[in-house]
């Protein structure tokens, strides 16, 4: 079980035609999802083709610095995108997010590469890049959900937070509920997917491995490993970004900074 059937470029048109049928339906019924699907679909194709080219080059050259640069680039994009998806944000959050997501994803990838997979060389892009990509993608979602929940909770509901402070709460006591909520919300997708994994959903990576000819048992062990890694990365990254935001919006004398002082415009 190691051969797999090649998907040719022309044959992708068959897959695309299914989507095009939906676009036509949307246009006829004026459902308004045509444009967005078209843009998203086109972006997906362009991004993946470019990725394919980059990966083939990195895989062929297989040198450490190239893998590192690609990984950092992916991390920066993930960190920035995570913050851009929140409804309230402040400039310093971008730096916080990039630093946290790169640190945690690299750390967890490092542990699995050094401790579990041990490829030669250790930076073998065939392992490092897909692992890193999955961690970053999931951390991105966790951070954007968690940070959005935290900032919305504290800044839109600042009367409540300041009411707590006025009653003698420390900044941590005033923010604790919001931090807890941010972690809960940030981890919802990860926890939900773990709960139904293998029952409702066949995980994408496992499916891919099986399609590519791996034995299901092997694919399952890979999947379990990656889910543990994802859960660890998402929790740590969400908590890290939330705590850094906490440090920035509260002062050492237990005040909540004004939105203006943080560079946030609230409507």
């Amino acid at each position: 079980m190691n051969a797999y059937i090649d998907v040719s470029w022309p044959s992708l048109l068959i897959a695309a035609s299914l989507l095009i049928a939906n676009l036509v339906l949307s246009a006829v019924l004026r459902l308004g999802m045509g444009r967005r699907l078209l843009v998203a679909g086109t972006r997906m194709v362009v991004q993946l083709v470019l990725l394919g080219l980059v990966l083939e080059w990195v895989f062929d050259s297989a040198n450490g610095p190239a893998v590192l640069v690609l990984g950092l680039l992916m991390g920066v994009v993930a960190g920035v995108t995570a913050v851009r998806r929140t409804s309230i944000r402040f400039p310093a959050a971008y730096l916080d997010s990039v630093v946290v997501i790169v640190t945690t994803a690299f750390l967890v990838t490092g542990v699995s590469v050094l401790g579990i997979l041990r490829p030669t060389p250790l930076w073998d892009p065939q392992y490092v890049i897909p692992l890193l990509g999955m961690l970053l993608g999931n951390a991105l979602t966790g951070i954007s959900l968690g940070l959005d929940r935290f900032l919305t909770g504290v800044l839109r509901d600042r009367t409540r937070v300041e009411g707590f402070l006025a009653l003698g709460a420390t900044r941590w006591e005033a923010a604790r509920d919001e931090v807890r909520e941010a972690l809960r919300v940030g981890l919802i997708p990860t926890v939900n997917s773990m709960l139904v994994m293998g029952i409702v959903s066949l995980p994408g990576m496992m499916t891919g491995q099986i399609l590519a000819g791996a034995a299901p048992g092997d694919a399952v062990r890979y999947q379990i490993m990656i889910v543990f890694m994802i859960a660890a990365t998402v929790s740590t990254a969400t908590f890290g970004v939330t705590m850094l935001a906490y440090g920035r919006i509260f002062t050492s004398d237990h005040r909540l900074r004004s939105a203006g002082a943080l560079g946030i415009e609230l409507d």
């Binding site: 300041e162 009411g163 707590f164 402070l165 006025a166 003698g168 004398d253 237990h254």
Partner: peptide
Amino acid sequence: PVLDQDRPRFRARVMYVQQQPV
């Protein structure tokens, strides 16, 4: 003067009651 770390204690002594309390 009120030190940073004493701020919660100070606020419990000098208590501000918001117009619409939380």
